[in-house]
Design a protein around this nucleic acid. Structure first.
Lengths: 153, 153
DNA sequence: AAAAATCGGTTGCGATTCGCCACCTAGTAA
DNA sequence: TTACTAGGTGGCGAATCGCAACCGATTTTT
């Protein structure tokens, strides 16, 4: 009694848990951001993030095994290896940007360093928000939650 | 040498670290999602998420002290306490949805339970993506990174 | 009025995970 | 042939996680 949504039990899987399985680990988002910034090599990740080498090694492997980064040796120099974003990794950009914008909105320090701009007019992109299926932006008050059991589509 | 972006050193703070300080901890996003689903009470969070009580207690306090949730006693029953989203917490919805949509796109299991719909036509919201300042949606290829030192605005 | 249940925690304690530091191997440069 | 670089791995103490038991303040039930 008192439950708003009676029939959801325990987890109500919504894709969040599976997303967090990888991205919920410490450093994952920071590594991802570095990747978007063009970082590709182990030593560069390490230097830029200040992360311990064993942790970095572990995270890179987990990101690779989850298809977010791909690891490929550099032909010219067989010591070196490149970690680059896959399409799956690139698809995390909206999440990353939303998180970053939120952090910037609520932290004292002004935004800094690289910002993402529209290549056309070089103006910064808009704050990320929710949109209706037809593209109309939606405010929080215009939303509702619906129980969609229909797995079909 | 070899650096794509010479002048950014070490961290290149972008609001991400400050965002992750709270939301990077285990369970934070799951708790947030439960909040959006209407969960407000300790026991309900615990039951729904299956999280250990001490961890839950710790996370709730951290979310409160960071202004994401507010904790207020229930007048009618002085045993009970309510944890509710603040505006700052509500502002995390785009991040949460983006993460969830990504998880759903790349995990086998179909989406489930509560989905967010446009209250007007009750159709599910659109996938989250980046938009230009004028509202035009942007593809990844249309983006560029710019060094914006100008703190002014 | 007394006993039982509920709610929101806290405390111990073992199991993981994190993070610093040293070290190692293959490949390249001097 | 010696030195250096890139990308790791291993040991070990410190911090965090998670289970289970317990607790104090309040209702609820009997």
């Amino acid at each position: 009694m008192g439950h708003l949504h009676e029939d959801m039990r325990e987890i109500a899987q919504c894709g969040l848990p599976s997303a967090l399985e990888v991205m919920g680990e410490r450093w994952s988002f920071m590594i991802l951001r570095a990747s978007f910034n063009g970082i590709r090599h182990f030593e560069d990740f390490q230097g830029q993030l200040g992360i311990a080498r064993n942790i970095l090694s572990n995270r890179l492997h987990r990101l690779v095994e989850n298809g977010i980064l791909k690891r490929e040796p550099v032909p010219d120099d067989r010591r070196r290896v490149e970690y680059r974003l896959t399409e799956k990794g690139i698809d995390l950009l909206p999440t990353l940007v939303a998180l970053r914008q939120w952090g910037e909105k609520y932290s004292a320090r002004t935004q800094s360093s690289l910002t993402i701009v529209d290549a056309r007019d070089r103006k910064p992109i808009a704050p990320i928000r929710l949109h209706a299926a037809d593209g109309r932006p939606l405010r929080y008050e215009e939303l509702d939650w619906e129980e969609s059991e229909k797995v079909g589509k």
